[in-house]
Lab assay of single mutants.
Amino acid sequence: WKVTVKGVEYTFDNPEEAKKFAEELAKKKGGQIHYKDGEFQVH
């Protein structure tokens, strides 16, 4: 499971962890999460 933040990729074994990480980042940066092709992208 991948989380991509401004072109930087983070990989997680667990989808729950990936989702949590993406949500935290989106909150911090005031961005939005897009889920696409099996990965979370924070913009």
Rank of each mutant, 00 (worst) to 15 (best):
N14R: 08
E17P: 02
W1E: 01
G30A: 04
Y35Q: 05
K29Q: 15
G7I: 02
E16G: 09
F12G: 00
I33Q: 03
E9R: 05
E9D: 06
V3S: 00
K20A: 13
E39H: 12
Q32D: 08
F12A: 00
G7S: 05
G7T: 06
T4R: 06
E23T: 08
Q32M: 11
K28Y: 12
A22Y: 02
F21P: 00
K27T: 11
V8E: 14
V3C: 02
G38W: 07
Y10P: 00
G7E: 09
H34E: 13
N14W: 05
K20C: 06
G31C: 10
E24I: 08
G31H: 07
Q32G: 05
G30D: 07
Q41E: 11
Y10G: 00
N14I: 04
K6R: 10
H43N: 10
E23V: 09
E39R: 05
W1D: 01
E16P: 01
V3P: 01
P15V: 15
G31L: 10
Y10S: 01
V5A: 11
E9A: 11
G38F: 13
K28I: 14
V3F: 03
T11W: 15
G38L: 06
E16T: 11
D37W: 01
T4V: 13
N14S: 12
Y10V: 04
F21C: 06
A22V: 05
A18R: 00
F40W: 15
H34G: 06
F40E: 03
A18I: 01
G31V: 08
Y35A: 03
F40L: 07
K28R: 07
G7R: 02
E24Q: 10
G38K: 11
V3L: 01
W1A: 04
K27R: 13
E9V: 13
Y35L: 07
A26Y: 03
V3A: 01
K28V: 12
D13A: 10
K28W: 11
W1C: 04
E17I: 08
D37L: 01
V3N: 00
F40Y: 12
F40R: 01
T4H: 06
N14F: 07
V5W: 15
G7M: 02
E23N: 05
N14V: 04
T4C: 04
V8W: 12
Y10M: 03
A18K: 00
K29R: 07
F12K: 00
T4M: 07
E24F: 11
D13T: 11
A22G: 02
K2R: 11
K29S: 15
W1I: 07
K2T: 07
D37E: 09
K27Y: 13
A22K: 02
Y10F: 11
A18Y: 02
D37N: 08
A26W: 04
V8A: 13
E23W: 06
G7F: 05
K2G: 02
G31S: 07
F21N: 00
D37S: 02
W1L: 04
Q41N: 08
E17Y: 06
H43E: 11
F40M: 05
L25H: 07
A26F: 03
E23Y: 09
V42D: 03
T11P: 09
K27N: 13
K36P: 04
E39P: 03
A22L: 05
K6C: 14
K20V: 09
E16I: 12
T4I: 13
V5T: 09
I33C: 13
W1V: 06
F40T: 03
T4Q: 04
K19D: 02
E17D: 13
K19T: 05
Y35K: 02
V42I: 14
A18H: 01
E9Y: 09
F12Y: 02
V42S: 03
E24G: 06
V42M: 04
L25S: 06
K6Q: 14
K2A: 04
I33F: 06
F40I: 10
D13P: 10
K36V: 14
T11S: 11
F12P: 00
E17A: 12
H43P: 04
E17Q: 10
K19A: 09
A22Q: 02
P15L: 15
E23M: 07
I33T: 05
G38Y: 12
Y35H: 05
E17H: 08
E39M: 07
Y35E: 08
F21T: 01
G7D: 12
D37Q: 05
T11L: 15
F40A: 03
K2F: 05
G38Q: 10
Q41H: 13
V42R: 01
A18N: 00
K20H: 11
G31W: 15
E17K: 09
V3Y: 01
K19F: 13
Q41L: 11
W1H: 06
V42Q: 03
